[in-house]
Design a protein around this nucleic acid. Sequence first.
DNA 1: TCAAATAGTTAAGCATACTAATTATTATAG
DNA 2: CTATAATAATTAGTATGCTTAACTATTTGA
Lengths: 161, 161
Amino acid sequence: MDASNQTCAQAILETVPVIIQAIRVEMRLERMHDLSVPQFRTLAYIARHPGCSLSDVAEFIGLTLPSMSVLINGLVGQGLVLRQVSLIDRRRVTLTLTEAGSEVYQRARQGTIAWLQRLLEPLSEEERRTIVQAMELLKPIFSAEMAHQKSKQLVEESTGR
Amino acid sequence: MDASNQTCAQAILETVPVIIQAIRVEMRLERMHDLSVPQFRTLAYIARHPGCSLSDVAEFIGLTLPSMSVLINGLVGQGLVLRQVSLIDRRRVTLTLTEAGSEVYQRARQGTIAWLQRLLEPLSEEERRTIVQAMELLKPIFSAEMAHQKSKQLVEESTGR
DNA sequence: TCAAATAGTTAAGCATACTAATTATTATAG
DNA sequence: CTATAATAATTAGTATGCTTAACTATTTGA
């Protein structure tokens, strides 16, 4: 009996797109210091993994290498990210946030979190706990799935699509 | 004391983009009968609100009217949606799914839900319940916020940005 | 040492979503 | 009962984001 499993899938499919759309519009309305959602997520990743390579970020964010290369170009152009050739392996690139990048990221993050906090205010302590628990359950599942999807793509490529 | 409020906001901001990215990639990988996420959501809305107008869908999905008009063009071109001039108000348009549209939507929906169900399989009954509860809490909050964001946009326009 | 693999870039094209301007219809003020 | 304003949708033009394909530079390893 997994009616609950189907219910759960439906709930996610109906809710998550609504949330992400609201986040996107919010970020655009507030201009978010001229960051798009992928740019924001990229800064977040680099902040937590300083010295990471382009492929690392691309895999995490779910973009192709060329897309990520261009995205990073933009951030470097705005002086938010430092792109340096790795000393160990000169094919690689190491990415770090500049001072400005760190500030812009923190401000964007604080702003978005403040907006979310305002939305969540009407909820009870317990309801918020439920949400946190749900997020903690879902995050690893979908992170793992993204990695899985990536390997699937590679297989398709090697077998001539 | 609302430490839990901040934790909740953070959890959402970290998790939701991961989920939506995985959904997007999944839909693209499976080609989903050539539907994008917004196209899918549009079909879903029309399925539930047959005879709705362009503005209705646009507001729900969070797109501008022109964008929605173009999106609908695509769906009409694929023979999935019927666009008819309203008999009551000839400025308006009424949207309904064609037989084909209904089928494609159902197949895409089933496919995505099946994929989600597979991902959620390892969870316990109770964990799933937590997720369903969280989604039910979040959906109305963000739906309402989208409406609010829209009125905000209109105000900005009327006050010359 | 030379071929294969890896990391990243550049280029070209398509899709998506925006703003601004336009058309067609309906509502309303004088 | 016009004439003007408001509404619903479309068209045109632009910007951006992301993709695939082709290419460069470096490293691995047979």
